[in-house]
Design a protein around this nucleic acid. Sequence first.
DNA 1: TTCGTCCTGGTA
DNA 2: TACCAGGACGAA
Length: 273
Amino acid sequence: MPELPEVETIRCDLEKVLVGKKILGVETDAEKLFSPSFKEVLKGVAGQTIKAVGRQAKLLYFSLSNSQYLLVHLKMTGRLLVREKGTPCDEWQHATFVLEGGKELRFADLRLFGYLKLVDSTQKLGEVLGEYGPEPLKDMSLEDFRSAVKGRRKPIKLMLMDQAVISGVGNIYANEALFEAGIDPRRQAASLTDKETSLLFAGIEKVLTEGLHYRGTTANDDKYVDAYGKKGQYQEHLRVYGREGLPCPKCQGKIQRIALGGRGTFFCPACQQ
DNA sequence: TTCGTCCTGGTA
DNA sequence: TACCAGGACGAA
């Protein structure tokens, strides 16, 4: 699923191709994806030029020449693809932005959980982005992380996935970071020692950086692809995620899968205490 | 703070 | 044919 490294990979791809392009029109067979409504989004974007492609955590946004913004969240199975006009439809394609110069930006989503939302001012964009906590690799220091962990009683893995506390980390990278730090995902956040907190913060930075380097993770039934439809490569380097029953890369013991907060959680019971 | 909900393709 | 995955949000 698209998390920080995947969304950033897509953002970079899109930035290269889309900045300076004018949106001629939008087509869809799923108006419910659009907020506040398809008609309003169409009115807001048609005829506008894309000035920049931004990202905060897992949310992408396009800055338009009329000072409005189109926000796109891919949730779990959303894709943004750049294609030449007239090429065959993509799997699960539900919206098409027709661009000047013969290209199209396509939104595809198997589960239709994603959304495309128009906000009409920089202030409103700020309000939406303000819901997110700081991002590792960008605006979160070890000290910030320490104070976030302090006093939180929920399991550390759920805290890592709480976008209001630390943004951009999802299920895959939370599992991997906890393995790197040797911490049991069920541990209460507040129970971590200073040393463990440092190890975990370093682990988060490590796995996100690796994920970016390999252009994201396309694991098992994962639907993530970049803006050209290509899979990521980080799944070749995962230590625990999706590896139930396989040997732990550190101790050769079996990776275990449990549910935590209703989400699949993978860890090595021997290495993660 | 936890739980149900949104949704569909794939699997048991 | 029933069930499961799962990010984020609203409801309990």
